[in-house]
Write a protein that binds this DNA or RNA. Structure first.
Length: 393
RNA sequence: UGACCCGUGGUGUAAUUGGCAACACAUCUGAUUUUGGUUCAGAAGAGUCCAGGUUCGAGCCCUGGCGGGUCAA
């Protein structure tokens, strides 16, 4: 009997082609569309709500002659993704809602909803690959980068577990986007020419400040410009052997800078950010180099090469260290070389990971720009995602 | 009070010997991007503090105000 698969059909090309390919491969395919968000506040294309996506998804399902169902997951989405997002911003951190969306919704709430159809697997249209082999009689699932370097999405799945991977298929991971579009066209799928989705998944492209202001109050504060020749940048406190200090962000006091303007809330800014400061008249653009939500201050530096923008390392606290490859867990005191990225689409960076009782310390070979607490660092070996964690600082 | 300097788009500056104002930053829009952020492209925006004058023509010259600053006493 054919294996059963429930595919998360979003109405976009990727999941449409994923569904098609699964059917081609002989699976018994069921399409499940999830509703996650109905609110439009702050959304840029407010005229493009999920209703349109459902129509596309349903058309595709009809074309492929597969059963089509809809499930409303907006409740868990709000609780586990959106609320988390607000609370992180409130604390002055920079969350990554899409990583959470995958861990909590697509590969959890959705997966559980899919159980209703007794699937052997659940599939999505992510650009990544999975392989499985057995090590000492135990199955090990590998999460691999997708073959299309422009669309590769493994980073967003960096918080998945072996259990979640065990149930999952990624039918389009070996394809490049243009090939996916071509298949959709050949098969006459309605979503063939649909524009790629952008912005927070399910919510869409938003004016973040407006979106955040739904829940987060604005609070006027001051912006200080820190000179690039500040002494702390030169001091050899960058003692490479002291992991804690190498992995501590630069911090400032207002006396070290000069007042350059006002902002509407330090928690609306993130390190590395240029736009939205509304301070002009400078030779070079100003970038946020630090925010202090306690004192409600934003510190900025002038120019792309301002030293305050760069750091050598970051820290992840013990309870936030996540291994996809559970068999690769490091021992305390161990150090290991991995390739690491700290944001989607960032080329992998050479780094050394050190595990101590204080947590995971990641020291990069090259200085990294805009390391933001709340974002995820993900470490790879070749094209396999090995583990990840929330950047603590 | 005396002498000197300055007053240009939101901000900081530029404009050969007088010929209808340039650049950067900020802003907005678009592109890229399933997070934030970054990057890229384009657009909008001042008629040059005010009032007179010289000139074919003044941001640039002259006179008088107003405003800001510096040095004297």
């Amino acid at each position: 009997m054919a294996k059963r698969v429930v595919v998360g059909l979003s109405g976009g090309v990727d999941s449409s082609v994923a569904a098609f390919l699964l059917k081609e491969q002989g699976y018994d395919v069921t399409a499940l569309f999830m509703i996650n968000w109905h609110d439009k506040t702050g959304v840029i294309d407010a005229d493009c709500p999920w209703n349109e996506d459902v129509v596309f998804a349903e058309l595709v399902a009809k074309k492929l002659e597969i059963p089509f169902h809809v499930v409303d997951l907006s409740e868990p989405y709000r609780e586990r993704v959106i609320d988390y997002m607000f609370s992180e911003y409130q604390k002055g951190r920079t969350p990554n809602p899409d990583v959470l969306c995958n861990r909590e919704i697509k590969f959890d709430a959705f997966l559980k909803s899919a159980e209703a159809y007794n699937p052997d697997y659940v599939a999505t249209g992510h650009y990544c690959k999975k392989t499985t082999d057995s090590v000492e009689g135990k199955l090990v699932h590998h999460l691999l980068a997708g073959d299309d370097p422009n669309k590769e999405q493994s980073y967003f799945l960096c918080q998945l577990s072996q259990e979640q991977l065990a149930r999952t298929l990624f039918p389009i991971g070996h394809l490049h986007k243009p090939e996916v579009r071509e298949i959709a066209r050949q098969q006459g799928l309605a979503s063939a020419n649909k524009k790629d989705s952008q912005g927070i998944c399910f919510v869409g492209k938003v004016h973040l400040p407006v979106f955040l202001q739904q829940k987060l109050k604005s609070r006027e504060g001051n912006i200080f410009e820190i000179p690039a020749d500040l002494s702390q940048y030169n001091e050899e406190k960058q003692d490479r052997s002291d992991l804690e200090s190498v992995c501590t962000p630069w911090s400032y006091i207002k006396e070290e800078g000069t007042w350059v303007g006002k902002h509407q809330g330090a928690h609306f800014f993130t390190v590395g950010q240029r736009k939205g400061l509304q301070v002009g008249g400078k030779e070079e653009p100003l970038f946020v180099i630090s925010t202090d939500v306690q004192e409600n201050r934003v510190y900025v530096g002038q120019g792309q090469s301002h030293p305050g923008l760069y750091r050598r390392g970051l820290k992840i606290i013990p309870e936030e260290i996540h291994w996809i490859r559970e068999d690769q867990v490091m021992k305390q005191g161990e150090s290991r070389d991995y390739m690491v990225r700290i944001r989607y689409r960032q080329p992998l960076q050479e780094a050394k990971l050190h595990l101590t009782d204080q947590g995971m310390f990641i020291i990069f070979r090259k200085l990294q720009r805009g390391i933001a607490a709340g974002q995820f660092a993900a470490w790879y070996e070749k094209d396999e995602l090995i583990g990840s964690g929330v950047i603590h600082r």
